[in-house]
Amino acid sequence: MANEILSVDELQVSYGVIKAVKGITLSVEEGSIVTIIGSNGAGKSTTLGAVSGLIRPSGGKVSFRGNNINRLGAARTAKLGISLVPEGRRIFSNLTVRENLLMGAYNRKDKEEIEGNFEAVFSLFPVLKERLKQSGGTLSGGEQQMLAIGRSLMANPDLIMMDEPSLGLAPIVVEEVFQAIQTLNSRGVTILLVEQNAAKALEISKYAYVLETGKITLQGSAKELLESEEVRKVYLGI
């Protein structure tokens, strides 16, 4: 793939004797939105965990901008420019919105740049500016998801990986979240998206992979997958 920012080659991840990811290969073109769809337990979250350094692969290679990042760990991987918005938001409910956002900038030193990132977050999610002094736990589900995305932005990433960003949200909030993803992408942020709402994910993506029981069973342009009879039947309910 031209200008690839992320390359995953024969990635394997095991939990004891259980092989969760069984040698998958995928790539993400810089400046694009790429989505991974698949049923529960397919290995989607495990794949993102391995890329972000939270999980150590048992085989294969993960490369970011051509450099092997397999053994860097989460903190060093984040410093390189990869952010993860985890499934379930994982915000700090007892910290204020401002404190939650600052947690995303923990490995950055330039205060002026950090203030600039605050403004970028507020331009995307104005409601967070109104809630700065509130504790994260008092926010609605949609606002918490916005906070989780905002926190990832505070690291000034080149690549954001999002794990089920629309899960459990009301339809109107889902629209807001997907609009924010497209806005981020238009600002030059590359996005790797894991999403149970396959139709919405494919509509905004350039390329897509279908993951089943730890293996990629289908891949192609998002348009091709949207038109695929198999995908329509299994994932889109058409």
Rank of each mutant, 00 (worst) to 15 (best):
M1N: 08
E4M: 07
E4W: 06
E4G: 01
E4N: 14
I5F: 03
D9A: 13
E10A: 08
E10L: 03
S14F: 13
S14H: 14
V17M: 03
K22N: 14
T25F: 06
T25K: 10
G31D: 07
V34E: 12
T35C: 12
S39P: 09
N40L: 11
S45E: 01
L48T: 06
A50C: 04
A50E: 00
A50F: 02
V51Q: 10
G53H: 04
G53S: 04
G53R: 02
L54P: 01
I55F: 13
R56H: 13
P57T: 13
S58E: 07
S58F: 01
G59E: 08
K61D: 09
F64S: 00
R65P: 00
R65S: 08
R65C: 04
G66Y: 07
R71E: 15
L72C: 06
A74C: 08
A74F: 11
T77S: 12
T77P: 02
A78T: 11
K79P: 01
I82F: 00
V85F: 10
V85I: 14
P86F: 08
E87I: 02
R89N: 05
I91V: 15
F92S: 12
L95Y: 14
V97M: 03
V97Y: 04
R98F: 09
N100G: 13
N100M: 12
L101Y: 08
L101Q: 08
M103Y: 14
G104I: 10
A105E: 10
R108Q: 15
D110R: 11
K111I: 15
E112Y: 10
E115I: 12
F118T: 02
F118W: 05
E119C: 10
F122I: 13
S123D: 15
F125V: 12
K129A: 15
E130M: 13
L132I: 11
K133R: 12
S135H: 07
T138K: 07
S140R: 10
G141S: 06
G142F: 09
A148D: 00
A148P: 01
S152V: 11
A155M: 11
N156S: 12
D158V: 00
L159D: 05
D163I: 04
E164S: 03
P165L: 10
G168R: 06
I172E: 09
E175Q: 13
E175Y: 05
V177Q: 09
F178T: 08
F178L: 14
S186G: 00
V189S: 05
I191R: 07
L193S: 01
L193A: 03
V194L: 04
N197E: 09
A199T: 03
K200A: 13
K200N: 08
L202Q: 03
L202W: 11
E203Q: 15
E203W: 05
S205H: 09
K206L: 09
A208T: 03
V210L: 04
L211Q: 03
Q219I: 01
G220D: 12
S221P: 08
A222R: 02
E224Y: 07
L226D: 03
E227S: 08
E230F: 09
